[in-house]
Amino acid sequence: MTGIVKWFNADKGFGFITPDDGSKDVFVHFSAIQNDGYKSLDEGQKVSFTIESGAKGPAAGNVTSL
């Protein structure tokens, strides 16, 4: 699925993605970002991701920028 990064705190390594389908915002951890180098996201960035079952509920996985 796709969405827009609502916010991401690079110091803490997590944030939230707002899915394009209008569903509830999804937690994203830096370890789910699939790019080389520094793993961070920018507010407003368009991303593709999967929904994984995290310890505290749904979380984004396999996050790639579009």
Rank of each mutant, 00 (worst) to 15 (best):
V28G: 00
D36P: 13
G15I: 02
D11T: 15
N9G: 05
T50M: 11
P19F: 04
E43Y: 14
N35Q: 13
G37E: 09
A60E: 01
A55W: 12
T64D: 05
G13Y: 02
V47M: 02
G57E: 04
Q34M: 13
D36G: 15
F8V: 04
W7R: 03
E52F: 09
I33E: 02
S48G: 09
V47K: 00
G15A: 02
Q34C: 13
I4T: 15
K12Q: 09
F49R: 00
G22V: 03
H29Q: 04
V47G: 00
G44T: 03
D20W: 06
I33C: 04
G57V: 05
Q45Y: 05
G3T: 00
D20E: 08
K24I: 11
K12C: 12
A59M: 15
V63F: 01
S23Y: 06
S40K: 15
T18C: 11
G37A: 09
I51C: 07
T2V: 09
F30A: 10
D11N: 13
I51V: 12
V47C: 05
F27G: 01
D20R: 04
T2H: 08
V26D: 00
T64P: 01
V26S: 01
G44M: 05
F49A: 01
A59F: 15
S53L: 15
Y38G: 09
S23D: 08
A60V: 04
G44F: 05
S40R: 13
D25C: 06
S40F: 12
W7S: 04
A32N: 10
D36I: 11
S23V: 05
N62M: 14
K6W: 04
K6E: 02
H29L: 05
F49S: 00
T2M: 09
G15P: 00
G22R: 06
I51Q: 05
D20L: 09
S40C: 15
Q34L: 14
G13E: 02
G37R: 09
V63D: 01
L41S: 01
A60Q: 01
E43C: 10
G54E: 11
F14I: 10
D42R: 15
S53H: 14
T18F: 06
A55F: 13
F27Q: 02
T50R: 09
F30E: 07
S53P: 15
Q34F: 09
F49P: 00
A32G: 08
I33V: 09
G57C: 07
F27S: 02
V28Q: 00
K6N: 06
F14D: 01
S40H: 11
E52T: 13
K46V: 10
A55L: 14
G54M: 10
G61Q: 14
G57F: 08
D11Q: 13
T50F: 10
G3P: 00
G61P: 02
I17W: 00
G37S: 11
G61V: 15
G37D: 10
M1Y: 14
E43W: 13
A60D: 01
M1F: 14
A60Y: 02
G44K: 06
A60R: 01
G37H: 10
L41R: 01
K12S: 06
F14N: 02
G15Q: 00
H29D: 04
T18Y: 08
P19N: 04
V47F: 01
H29G: 04
F49Q: 00
N62Y: 09
N62F: 11
V28D: 00
K39E: 05
E43D: 10
G3L: 01
D25K: 04
A10T: 14
D11C: 15
F16D: 00
K56Y: 15
F14Q: 03
G13Q: 03
G13D: 01
S23T: 13
T64S: 13
Y38D: 10
D11S: 14
N35P: 07
T64W: 11
A59D: 04
V26N: 01
A10V: 13
A55C: 12
V47A: 02
A59V: 15
G3C: 01
A10Y: 11
D36L: 11
F8K: 01
F14C: 05
K24F: 09
A10H: 13
L66M: 12
V28R: 00
A59E: 14
F8P: 01
Q45I: 08
V26K: 03
N35A: 15
D21H: 07
I17E: 00
S40I: 13
K6H: 07
G22C: 08
I17Y: 00
G61L: 14
G54A: 10
Q45P: 01
G37P: 09
S31I: 05
K39R: 12
F30Y: 13
E52H: 10
L41M: 05
G13F: 03
G3D: 00
P58L: 12
F30L: 07
K56W: 14
E52I: 15
N35Y: 12
G61M: 15
G61D: 07
F14W: 15
V63P: 01
G61H: 14
I51N: 04
F49Y: 11
V63R: 00
D42Y: 15
G57L: 07
D11K: 14
S65L: 14
G57K: 07
D21S: 08
A60G: 04
H29M: 04
S53W: 14
N9A: 09
G3A: 02
L66Y: 09
D11V: 15
S40A: 12
F16C: 04
K39H: 09
Y38R: 06
G44Q: 05
D36Q: 15
I4L: 08
G15E: 01
L41F: 05
D21C: 08
G57I: 05
G13A: 03
G3R: 00
M1C: 11
F8I: 03
I4W: 13
P19T: 05
L66A: 08
Q45N: 07
V28P: 01
K12T: 06
L41Y: 03
D21P: 03
N35L: 11
